[in-house]
């Protein structure tokens, strides 16, 4: 078995062990490989953080693990449409420093997903991928921003 699979297998074991204790409290509802034969493609589902305009939504993500993981970060994208200053609306691309320059091999797929869940509630409008959403925040229109997000969460993330 190669180094990537070994490390991913270890992460998977930790996930399965911690599942019972963390599922209720964490925003991360599901994190698992797409199928058993391929450890390099994962899927995740997260709940919108409570008290945020994303609350009540369920968001799906895909995770592509590069062959030199964990030296290189995984590629994570939203599948569910998300209205967020740091997520490209059309593609689901995420702008987060740890997914790019600030990556460190100590991050796991789980901790990276939790960081993304945290990003939902803590947008960074100075480096936007969704300029419309970011502009509302930059103009200080918190109310307008939150209702826009709530609307898109309703449309795309609540079935």
């Amino acid at each position: 078995m190669d180094a990537v699979s070994r490390r991913l297998l270890k992460e998977l074991q930790d996930l399965q062990r911690d599942r019972a204790s963390s599922a209720a409290t964490s925003e991360l509802e599901e994190l698992a490989p797409m199928d058993d034969a391929d450890l390099l493609s994962w899927k995740a589902t997260m709940r919108g953080p409570e008290g945020s305009p994303y609350e009540g939504g369920r968001f799906h993500l895909t995770i592509q693990v590069p062959s030199n993981y964990p030296l290189q970060p995984p590629k994570i994208e939203f599948v569910t449409r998300v209205c967020h200053p740091n997520v490209r609306f059309a593609t689901g691309e995420i702008c987060l420093d740890i997914l790019k320059t600030a990556w460190s091999p100590a991050w796991t797929l789980r901790s990276t997903c939790l960081a993304i869940a945290l990003l939902l509630n803590h947008p960074e409008p100075s480096s936007p991928l969704n300029v419309d959403a970011a502009n509302l925040l930059r103009c200080g229109d918190q109310l307008g921003y939150e209702s826009l997000v709530r609307m898109y969460t309703r449309i795309y993330a609540m079935q």
């Binding site: 270890k10 992460e11 964990p70 091999p105």
Partner: peptide, 13 residues
């Protein structure tokens, strides 16, 4: 379970 402080931070082994 191997204690974390005995494990490498990159490979987790």
């Amino acid at each position: 379970d191997v204690p974390d402080y005995f494990c490498d931070k990159i490979s987790f082994s």
